[in-house]
């Protein structure tokens, strides 16, 4: 992942489906403030919704920390989701389309990865899962552009 500096703008709990709505609203506002276009805002909010739901449904609840990044001319938003749930036994498989352990179409993780510019996941069985994503405003490097 790119540098770790930046200021944390919010830390939101993810304990219920009402919290999911708050996460979506917060991310929408933060992205709009940073100057993301409508399509990029929508992609980021959708990715946040998928990941927050994963945290709630599979991780048994947790939190998301949102950070505004500024490196030179580029500005971005980093969202770090974490839970203390059972963890994901096979991350590679979980990132593939169609994998699901709960309700849904099994597009959560892999789909969210396609909606953001940077994606990293760390999960240990029995200890929990941490997923971090970054989106940059247009004009910034897009390292994920070529793949897929």
């Amino acid at each position: 992942m790119t540098d770790t500096s930046g200021r944390v703008t919010a830390c939101l709990p993810i304990r219920s489906d009402m919290d999911l709505a708050w996460v979506r609203q917060h991310v929408r506002q933060a992205a709009a403030q940073l100057g993301f276009g409508l399509v990029d805002q929508t992609k980021l909010v959708t990715a946040a919704s998928e990941l927050a739901r994963n945290t709630l449904v599979h991780g048994g609840g947790g939190q998301v920390e949102s950070t505004v990044l500024e490196t030179g001319a580029a500005r971005g938003l980093r969202l770090a989701f974490s839970d203390q749930g059972p963890g994901i036994p096979d991350i590679e498989r979980a990132l593939g389309d169609g994998y699901t352990s709960g309700g849904g179409l099994g597009l959560g993780l892999g789909g969210a990865r396609r909606l953001v510019h940077e994606f990293s996941i760390d999960s240990r069985p029995g200890e929990g899962t941490a997923v971090t994503v970054i989106c940059w405003t247009a004009g910034a490097p897009r390292p994920r552009e070529e793949s897929r």
Binding site: V39, T42, T46, E50, L107, G110, G111, R114, L115
Partner: peptide, 13 residues
């Protein structure tokens, strides 16, 4: 909406 449609396609849905 267009933004929603683009996002869904990117999501694979």
């Amino acid at each position: 909406r267009p933004a929603v449609a683009i996002t869904l396609v990117e999501l694979g849905l």
